[in-house]
Design a protein around this nucleic acid. Structure first.
Lengths: 245, 245
DNA sequence: ATAGTGAACCAAAACATAATTGGTTCGCAA
DNA sequence: TTGCGAACCAATTATGTTTTGGTTCACTAT
């Protein structure tokens, strides 16, 4: 009688994963089911699952089950929930409220090392062919600035907003708002922001970030108007109470 | 036999609210209990509750109950996680970044009905003996303002911060920061905020909220210094870059 | 002795069911 | 017509049971 080893069970489970019959985040059979299906003892099954979990292919939770892929963190889960109900323009408005203050805090707290990293991100040439990559670097810079504000609640709040732009119809929106001119403008504004942060000028950093976001918002407005989504108000520009200045 | 009118029930419930005799989670008796306690029919009780709800003093939810103050968004799971790592002073700093902008948005979007509710909350006499009740009404007003900003991501972000003050060592902190003078000052500032919102003056609302939060933060600083937690810098006041103005 | 096995047990999560609570409707009576 | 009580509805909570991963332990084959 041949014993069923952990290697065998491992192959069995990995086959399940690779067959494509299991989507991401799908439930795998329970340990007891796997034990019966493969003929291995539950101990052996757990050994095999542990090794697969260590590789990052699955994750397990007591009382819940075993799942393919990686668990979702609560922050992104909440972000996904917001996605369903929040309009892109709402998210941008929220960023316009939070990010200038984040930049101001960042200006007073960023270390020279962190500023160097910001320069590296801001000075990247944006003439990349892929739009995704462009957005990636943009997002990275904003995240770095948020981290340097050294305020965890604020950073969490920003993460919430940043996650939302990675999904849904943001892609199409972005594609329409991108042009050679706007790319150069974005880069110039990024440089202005980092320069203010490097100088430790909170007020200038706040204003630079506001300018940057206002530019993006107006681009989105015009893109939305072009797409006819809200064709009625095509020449509207978002000023968000200029009384602020 | 004298009939019990809605006015009577109304007085009965408002007394409950002001007495500070309400439960920790600020849950009010059920409609059936109120009906039995006051001798009024359930219909009359509902009339009274509806009027109080319209003022913003309570909120009701089917299957859940009737509660004092204003409802909170259910993001408690994530908020609990933030609680573990966030320092009170960090949270206040974050509020100082977000809430003035929320107040500004609110000033441009609040309906007259909502403003009426704000007045009801702001004009409450804060000379209640119980500290919990005071904090309850304060929190309710801030939540109502956040809701009237009509920006769900921002509201979620605020809820994140607001939930934290219900736990941990906030209680002791609050108790030390409360005094007769500070209570009156808080009430005056609340009134100033609502007045600016009613006038639709975004800039004034923003500044009024900033003043209010700065007062609270400084009170916390001094309380912390008195408690000897950070005795070193006892006469520090938090100015958060006056360059903003 | 050592490693493996199966069973039992534990704790967390899900699931199912009953009870509670605000919201609504309807018959009845003053 | 108006108001009351009762019943009913729907959302939510409370409670108990089942499932599931995590753990322990006596026992056995090697």
């Amino acid at each position: 009688m041949n014993k069923v080893t952990a290697i065998d069970v491992r192959r069995y489970v990995v086959d399940l994963l690779m067959n494509g019959s299991l989507a991401a985040n799908a439930r795998l059979p329970t340990e007891r089911e796997l034990s019966e299906a493969t003929g291995a003892s539950r101990r052996v099954v757990r050994q095999a699952l542990s090794s697969i979990e260590a590789e990052g292919l699955i994750w397990r939770r007591q009382g819940k089950g075993t799942f393919a892929g990686q668990p979702i963190e609560p922050v992104s889960a909440l972000a996904a929930e917001i996605n369903q109900t929040a309009e892109p323009i709402e998210v941008m408005e929220a960023r316009l409220c939070i990010e200038p203050e984040i930049a101001a805090l960042c200006a007073t707290r960023a270390t020279s090392d962190e500023v160097a990293r910001m320069w590296a991100l801001a000075r990247l040439h944006y003439d990349v062919e892929d739009d995704e990559v462009t957005e990636l670097w943009d997002s990275a810079l904003h995240r770095l600035i948020a981290r340097c504000a050294r305020n965890r609640p604020l950073q969490t709040a920003y993460t919430l907003l940043d996650d939302t732009r990675a999904s849904r119809d943001w892609q199409g929106m972005r594609a329409r708002t991108r042009s050679e001119r706007s790319l150069r403008e974005t880069m110039a504004q990024h440089i202005a922001i980092v320069r203010a942060i490097e100088a430790g000028d909170a007020s200038a950093a706040r204003e630079a970030m506001r300018d940057h976001l206002l530019t993006r918002i107006n681009a989105m407005f015009q893109a939305a108007a072009l797409a006819g989504t809200t064709a009625a108000d095509s020449d509207i520009t978002y000023d968000h109470e200029a009384s602020h200045v």
